[in-house]
């Protein structure tokens, strides 16, 4: 549903625009698979800035808590990160499922502080898409949705912004689905 309103290309372009505005890098030079850390030199404060910009552009709330910390809160301490701050085998599996090809080469034992290098414009766009995909069929007024300025989804009749789940809720629901389907966190 939201794909028809906000295309994948629009999301990726907005991600690139947010990175370009934050860092001063020429938007044209940003590739979908560029590592924000290794290729674009994005710093910690820049990451926050990019995420806040995306929240404003799309009217969404990105996840506050790290996906592996959600996993630990839901399925038990130590399932995803060990006490040496390394990603466990199960944690790597979670990241592979979440980030697809960006995490394909991950091996268990990778230090958590090396994970930001995996973030690319494409993975960021995927996080935005996941939230937008939670759009209900109809607005609370029973009307269709429309995309204001091509990015902010509102009710076509009342112009009320769509009430979408937060990125944290999306991740929690996704983890529950993964657990149901794959039993990753079974002891």
């Amino acid at each position: 549903m939201s794909q028809n309103l906000v295309s994948d290309d629009t999301i990726l372009n907005e991600v690139k625009k947010a990175i370009a505005h934050t860092t001063g890098i020429d938007e044209e030079t940003i590739e979908p698979d560029s590592s924000l850390v290794d290729d674009l030199g994005v710093l910690s404060l820049d990451f926050l800035d990019v995420n806040f910009r995306l929240e404003q552009v799309f009217g969404i709330k990105m996840a506050r808590n790290f996906v592996l910390e959600h996993a630990e809160e839901m399925f038990g301490e130590g399932v995803a990160i060990n006490e040496e701050s390394e990603v466990t085998e199960t944690g790597v599996e979670v990241l592979r499922l979440r980030l697809n090809e960006a995490a394909a080469d991950l091996e268990p034992g990778i230090p958590v502080d090396e994970l930001p290098a995996l973030v690319t414009p494409k993975t960021l766009a995927g996080a935005v898409r996941d939230v937008l995909n939670c759009l209900p069929e109809k607005s609370p007024a029973g009307a269709d949705w429309k995309a204001e300025d091509g990015t902010r989804i509102v009710c076509a009749e009342t112009n009320e912004p769509a009430s979408l789940p937060s990125g944290d809720e999306v991740v929690q629901n996704w983890l529950n689905r993964v657990q149901e389907e794959r039993g990753l966190f079974s002891s």
Binding site: L36, V42, L43, S44, F47, L48, V50, N51, M62, A63, R64, N65, F66, V67, E69, H70, R98, L99, P111, V112, D113, E114, L115, P116, L118, V119, T123, L124, G126, A127, V128, G167, D168, V171
Partner: peptide, 9 residues
């Protein structure tokens, strides 16, 4: 590492 890897929370 850094606080907000972006998209990972």
């Amino acid at each position: 590492g850094i606080s907000e890897p972006g998209g990972l929370g």
